[in-house]
Design a protein around this nucleic acid. Structure first.
Length: 285
DNA sequence: AACCAGGACACAA
DNA sequence: TTGTGTCATGGT
């Protein structure tokens, strides 16, 4: 007895679904032909874009507000891009990544995922998270003929796990960090839902109290799940982007680049960061 | 087969 | 305040 699958078709002008789902901000989307299959909350979701329309399929949704929030289809991309500094690197990256959006993801899943991301390639992060969901998540009803999927394990489930079982998912030295984060969230020592109401600096400081969470991972959580569009994650790709696009031929230290990024990109710096990141990752095949 | 990956951290200078 | 070695694992 398979549960009913509902379909929603919505307008998505200036929305590049593939770039959005495949730009290293979320790790659970996989292409299936022209469609993308993934998991949002406790549902398997299949998305497919045709022109300026996106078709969504999911099992038994009472409404679709959760998906519209996740995809941020109502965000004003023109206003965001207009807030960027008017310089050639930005013009070039925006031209190359037109329609790229930031998602609004679940804070716990985002925190856990980026704890697992440190010094790993995106394909490796994806596979670690797959193993984690397979081992600790719960099996979800299948959507049409797509492969079965598991939910992302909640903090309570991982707080009850032991380090050896986590290490079996191939996360290496990150296992104790994930475990302690799960325990902090489960015991409500850290209230992720409250972060979005704090000033950016305070929210960031809360996250950085966790072992294994420094400035970069904290900023990923703030940007991808808490709505802080000024948060600016600085990873190796962004360092390369800044050096190559803004300081070519000069040797510029990391703290110097951090100070530059802090002031140069404006109120939606994190959005600009995602454009730089995706541009650098995709420009040469 | 080396080199590197959406880093954090302790430690040295 | 800024630079360096270490951690675990597998893709390219």
């Amino acid at each position: 007895m398979t549960p009913p699958v509902a379909t929603l078709v919505f307008e998505a002008a200036d929305y590049d679904l593939a770039a959005t789902l495949n730009s290293g901000q979320a790790f659970r989307w996989r292409p299936h032909g022209a469609a993308w299959a993934g998991v949002v909350g406790a549902r398997q979701v299949v998305l497919e874009q045709r022109g300026e329309q996106v078709t969504a399929r999911a099992v038994e949704p009472a409404d679709w507000s959760w998906l519209k929030s996740y995809l941020q289809i109502n965000s004003d991309l023109n206003a965001i891009v207009a807030s960027f500094p008017d310089d050639e690197p930005i013009r070039k990256t925006v031209r190359a990544c037109r329609g790229l959006r930031l998602l609004r993801q679940d804070p716990w899943e985002t925190l856990a995922s980026f704890i697992l991301s440190s010094t790993k390639q995106i394909v490796q992060i994806q596979s670690v998270i797959d193993r984690l969901c397979e081992a600790f998540g719960s099996r979800l009803p299948r959507c049409d003929g797509f492969p079965p999927a598991c939910s992302f394990p909640d903090a309570a489930r991982l707080a009850a796990a032991n380090e050896a079982d986590l290490r079996a998912c191939k996360m290496g030295f990150r296992a104790p960090f994930l475990l302690q984060a799960a325990q902090a969230v489960y015991t409500k020592q850290l209230d992720l839902a409250a972060l979005s109401d704090l000033p950016l600096e305070n929210a960031r400081a809360r996250l950085m109290e966790l072992p294994g969470v420094g400035r970069k991972i904290a900023d990923c959580v703030l940007l991808f799940s808490c709505g802080f569009s000024q948060a600016f994650p600085m990873d190796v790709w962004i360092l390369r982007a800044l050096r190559e696009l803004y300081f070519p031929g000069r040797k510029v230290s990391l703290p110097e680049l951090a100070r530059f990024a802090e002031t140069h990109f404006g109120p939606h710096a994190g959005y600009a960061q995602q454009y730089l990141f995706h541009y650098m990752r995709t420009k040469r095949r």
